[in-house]
Design a protein around this nucleic acid. Structure first.
Length: 378
DNA sequence: CTGTCGTGTCATACC
DNA sequence: GGGGTATGACACGAC
């Protein structure tokens, strides 16, 4: 015998009357609108009147919950997942599947860059993506490039978060198959290409044929025009030294043009490499952001499901209390009230009224005239 | 044979 | 205005 003590009712007022015969007067049933009461009866189930009928309409809620449960399987539904995938895969020209990140600026890239790139562009990159943005592009590093490819084998420093560090980026295990060597401005031993036939992707100082071809082109042109210094110097020398170099040698217009072209192309080649690496960085960051948002979304869905369950439990509890209260009500002759004919109304002032249901309309109770009874419950 | 990838180069905009 | 950088677009060879 649970005590229905959850309903707090105000004292009886002059408006309060007991249920009587004329309470069932059909004439009065048509009127509505006691502003102090709210109609909370279910219209479709007179046998189960409930003050939270509208909320107890579970047809949508359960659907929602079941959908949520489905969505929670992996944080989101397959449909949403595929939609996300589609959105993510759209354009960009680059795959988002970074389990096999294809492009990898080689470590020797750093050796190829001039100090100038670490000033403006690198700082811009750093501000956008990482403090480490494009570090390592100093002429100091350029000296290290002499080690022919510069494939360090210090794997202990490898970290998945080291994408932005060109050195460690290149050392990532899943990138190690990319053995391109971009020390284009250095003379290479002819033997370098001989490794290609054995293990092309793992050959240490493997030189990309395309780069060889292109670099060789300028190299040949330079030789053809008898440029008296190396292309490496042409590209990597600081402006002042470069101008000094040009001043030292009396160059023809053709030579001058070629030298400036070589320098421009070399600079742009590095810029392109940096640009592509940044693009990959952006994609990595975006993918991390997507993962974070997916986790966040899954958490919110879990919380929502939990909240819905809680609401459902509360509704059931209230419904039970309603039934209990109603079952204890009696008319003037001591008979239990028929749930099909009467229902409880709850006023905003805390009053609880027994109202007669509207004739013809199964669920809608009569309001004002049926305020025949108001009882206190303790 | 075709598609993809990596790269160099060019054109262009911008600083 | 020259030099450098950033980036989209394109070409090309490798795979």
């Amino acid at each position: 015998p649970a005590q229905p003590a959850l309903l707090t009712l105000p004292p009886s007022t002059p408006d309060s009357v007991n249920i009587s015969a004329h309470a069932r007067d059909p004439v009065a049933n048509g009127t509505t609108g006691d502003p102090m009461t709210s109609d909370l009866f279910p219209e479709e189930d007179p046998a189960l009147p409930s003050p939270l009928a509208s909320l107890l309409d579970d047809s949508t809620m359960f659907d929602e919950i079941s959908l949520l449960a489905l969505a929670l399987e992996e944080g989101f539904s397959p449909a949403l997942a595929s939609r996300l995938e589609d959105e993510l895969d759209s354009d960009s020209g680059l795959s988002l599947n970074f389990s096999h990140v294809p492009a990898s600026p080689s470590s020797s890239e750093a050796s190829y860059s001039s100090s100038s790139s670490s000033s403006s562009s690198a700082s811009t990159v750093a501000s956008l993506f990482s403090e480490e943005g494009a570090v390592g592009y100093s002429s100091d590093v350029a000296a290290e490039g002499e080690e022919e490819g510069g494939f360090s084998t210090d794997l202990s420093k490898i970290s998945p978060l080291s994408f932005r560090d060109p050195e460690s980026f290149n050392r990532l295990p899943w990138l190690q198959h990319v053995g391109h060597d971009h020390t284009y401005n250095q003379q290479r031993p002819a033997a370098a290409k001989t490794q290609k036939g054995l293990r092309p992707h793992l050959a240490k100082p493997y030189e990309h044929d395309a780069s060889d071809r292109m670099w060789g082109r300028d190299e040949r042109r330079a030789r053809g025009l008898k440029i008296p210094f190396s292309n490496e110097r042409i590209v990597n020398l600081p402006v002042e030294e470069f101008n000094d170099l040009l001043a030292e040698h009396r160059l023809t217009d053709a030579q001058l043009t070629l030298v400036r072209d070589i320098r421009r192309r070399g600079k742009n080649k590095m810029a392109a490499q940096n640009c592509r690496r940044r693009k990959l960085d952006v994609l990595v960051d975006l993918e991390a952001g997507v993962s974070g948002l997916r986790r966040h979304r899954a958490r919110l869905l879990r919380e929502k499901t939990e909240a819905l369950r809680s609401i459902q439990a509360m509704k059931q509890r209230v419904s039970g209390l309603y039934q209990e209260v109603f079952s204890r009500l009696r008319d003037d002759e001591g008979r239990p009230l028929a749930a099909a004919e009467y229902a409880l109304q709850f006023g905003s002032d805390g009053r609880v009224l027994v109202a007669q249901r509207r004739q013809g309309s199964a669920g809608e109770p009569n309001r004002r005239p049926s305020k025949k009874q108001e009882r206190r419950k303790k």
